[in-house]
């Protein structure tokens, strides 16, 4: 029987492959191109994670500096973008700054169960039925961003990766070193939390 020792994992040649090859081959000044390519995405991700713009700026700086430090070790086993977000998530968790807006508490499914019989809706609310482009304005986008920031960090990170950044369950699990089922549990609770706040916004706050 022949066994292959340490088989070389397949390399993923994404749109960043050539640029990273060039940087790692000595054209380090091209690292600025990589920063330019992702700074806007990372800026928004960091803002939604940190709330405070200066904390978000620190997070981006630290992320790119860590990426530069470890880029030589990048083996193209995943898309560069996924690795970048892994570094960003790790940088964010290491800060471990406690937030008074989003204490690190567990969200239980029970707290989002529909209310008792008397309060159950007999129709679908208008905000779930009207065309999305008529509904989503700047004010509502602000409400969504502000609500996400009040989620405990571990739930916030998952909903950002899945529903804002567009990573799949598997990719999010890899980025956060979680099992896919754990990602699903956190995502569901984060969405239910946001849904409750949006319900409140549409029913009472406007």
């Amino acid at each position: 029987m022949t066994t292959e020792k340490n088989p070389t994992p397949q390399q993923i040649k994404d749109k960043d492959f050539d640029l990273i090859q060039a940087i790692n081959s000595g054209e380090v000044d091209k690292f600025q191109d990589l920063v330019k390519r992702y700074e806007a995405k990372l800026y928004n991700f960091s803002l939604r994670m940190c709330r405070d713009p200066s904390d978000a700026e620190d997070m981006i700086q630290d992320t790119f500096l860590n990426v530069f430090r470890y880029l030589k070790n990048f083996r193209y086993e995943t898309k560069f973008k996924n690795w970048l977000y892994k570094v960003a998530a790790s940088t964010c968790f290491k800060k471990r700054r406690k937030s008074k807006f989003a204490p690190d508490k567990e969200l239980s499914l029970e707290e989002f169960l529909p209310n008792d019989e008397a309060e159950k809706p007999d129709h679908v609310p208008q905000w779930a039925l009207m065309p999305l482009d008529k509904l989503l304005n700047e004010e509502l986008a602000g409400v969504i961003n502000k609500t996400i920031i009040t989620l405990p960090k571990k739930y916030r990170m998952v909903i950002l990766l899945r529903d804002i950044e567009g990573f799949s369950t598997t990719e999010s699990a890899q980025i956060l070193n979680l099992s896919p089922s754990n990602v699903k549990v956190r995502l569901h609770r984060a969405r239910l939390y946001l849904r409750e706040k949006l319900k409140g916004y549409f029913e009472n706050d406007r």
């Binding site: 159950k120 609310p125 779930a128 999305l132 969504i144």
Partner: peptide
């Protein structure tokens, strides 16, 4: 109806998240 409403409002919540636009990065910070 209650579950249908719950499903539709959750679907809408997800759709809203997926369509929230990013802010441009401030030039100064860039």
């Amino acid at each position: 109806v209650a579950c249908f409403s719950c499903m539709e409002t959750l679907k809408r919540t997800v759709a809203l998240c997926k369509n929230v636009k990013d802010q441009p990065i401030p030039q100064e910070f860039s």
